[in-house]
Design a protein around this nucleic acid. Structure first.
Lengths: 257, 257
DNA sequence: CGAGGTGTTGAGATTTGTCAACCTACGTGG
DNA sequence: CCACGTAGGTTGACAAATCTCAACACCTCG
């Protein structure tokens, strides 16, 4: 194989000048090695001996307040973003302005891959709570992926995951009833939170009913009605944005048939 | 940069033995350089000087008859497939057997990326007419992508395209009426055919109304009804599977509002 | 030529959307 | 710290889109 290539300090500097100001955060805060979300992130499967090099991909962090946009449709694509903390939605705007939420993303998940194709973002990403993201310039990822096969494999895996997720949402939107959609939605959230060490049964919905409805292809009133129906059936407790899943197997049964 | 690495003859032989018999087709038929679909395919943006190396990715071709499966859900992922000729649908099976068509694919498009994540295909791909595909083992793609940046870039672009397509289908399924879905579907087919040098106004639907309905999240009867409505409105001529688009701007207008 | 898969059309059922009213929670500014 | 305004959430009545079931027509392929 070829010799190792570090991202040169010049390259970093040039990039930083081109794109935006370097963050004020001291460099050491950005290390992947100490990040408890590394497992689900881009460096997840990179062996420790390569990690020091791969960490160079993360050239800055950025703080996004609730309601702010990480990127907009039409923005130039430069970075893939890793969520260190917080919660985002991505959405696609119709030609006439209708908005379709295309995903919800939490800590350890990646954002921005949609721009990789033609150099411009097609989606936009909006923070649903105050969030922290790692900026990973695509040019650095590209270069590093050539040098570190485990990173390359991981990158492909992450992209493929997003493809598979899309197909799953097609299944949901194309052939499930409102009840099934909500059940699948809650189960999915629950699993992802559990996987991150949070409670899988008690959590707060960061998004509005409108957002959920858009994502699931339902009117916001339908979302509300189905949730109260679940409540009456003893499947969940709903208190506005506060959700407690009482009977997860009951929810899972809804998908089984 | 690192030195060029050719796929060694040994590696090829081992791979072929592992996976399946080498094709009977003489080697020279498989070259990308002569393929008129190269533009839309994986080697599309690879400069001529690298093409000879990249062509080695395609280690065989395979002929699939109508109705046969290129791969099944659960099959081990080894290859990405490039369609040389023919037409495919991919679909995802629900836990209870419902089928959701996740895409239709024609010459020059790639199949099988959904398995890249966990090593098993989640979708299945079924030929809707007799088809020819190029087999590109992922292990070879991976290796070559490290050596040929233009191929790497292209691979990422192709994956990102599929992600973006998914988001577009979400928009369609999540927030369009039956009419809008059909209009979008026909326009999309038309554009892709046109781009390949076929007529964008007269073509044959290779899939059934049921397939279309599954893809668009509609009952097959609704598909039929909307098509006849389009016919009555002078937008298209429909004769079973034979479609003539009479008024494409009329169809496009349906999406604009 | 026949059979089975595919496509069309109609009538009625059902789900979900729309509109409207009202309620709740939260944040801001006095 | 409270009050008020506003965004978000719930619920009801009704409308509309789409689905389901059923009958029939068509086309292709063996």
């Amino acid at each position: 194989m070829s010799a190792a290539v570090q991202v040169s300090p010049q390259a970093r500097t040039v990039f930083v000048r081109q794109v935006e100001r370097p963050t004020d955060a001291p460099r050491h805060e950005v290390t992947c090695a100490k990040c408890n979300l590394r497992r689900t992130c881009l460096s997840g499967s990179v062996p420790d001996e390569d990690l020091e090099r791969v960490e160079n991909i993360v050239y800055a962090r950025r703080r996004i307040k609730r309601g702010e946009r990480l990127f907009n449709a039409g923005d130039e694509f430069r970075c893939i973003y890793a969520i260190r903390s917080g919660f985002f939605k991505t959405s696609l705007a119709d030609s006439d302005g209708r908005e379709q939420v295309t995903g919800f993303f939490m800590g350890g998940e990646l954002l921005g891959m949609d721009g990789l194709d033609n150099g411009r973002h097609k989606d936009r990403a909006i923070a649903l709570e105050d969030s922290d993201v790692c900026l990973m310039p695509y040019s650095l990822i590209e270069q590093m992926a050539r040098e570190v096969p485990s990173l390359q494999r991981r990158l492909h895996s992450v992209l493929a995951c997003e493809i598979a997720r899309g197909h799953g949402v097609m299944l949901l939107l194309g052939s499930m009833s409102a009840q099934e959609r909500l059940a699948a939605f809650l189960i999915n959230l629950s699993k992802r939170l559990l996987h991150r060490g949070y409670s899988g049964s008690d959590f707060v919905l960061r998004m509005t009913r409108n957002d959920i409805g858009s994502y699931l292809g339902l009117a916001l009133e339908t979302v509300s009605r189905v949730l109260t129906a679940f409540h009456k059936d003893g499947l969940v407790d709903v208190q506005q944005k506060q959700i407690s899943i009482v009977d997860i197997t009951g929810l899972e049964r809804m998908l089984g048939r």
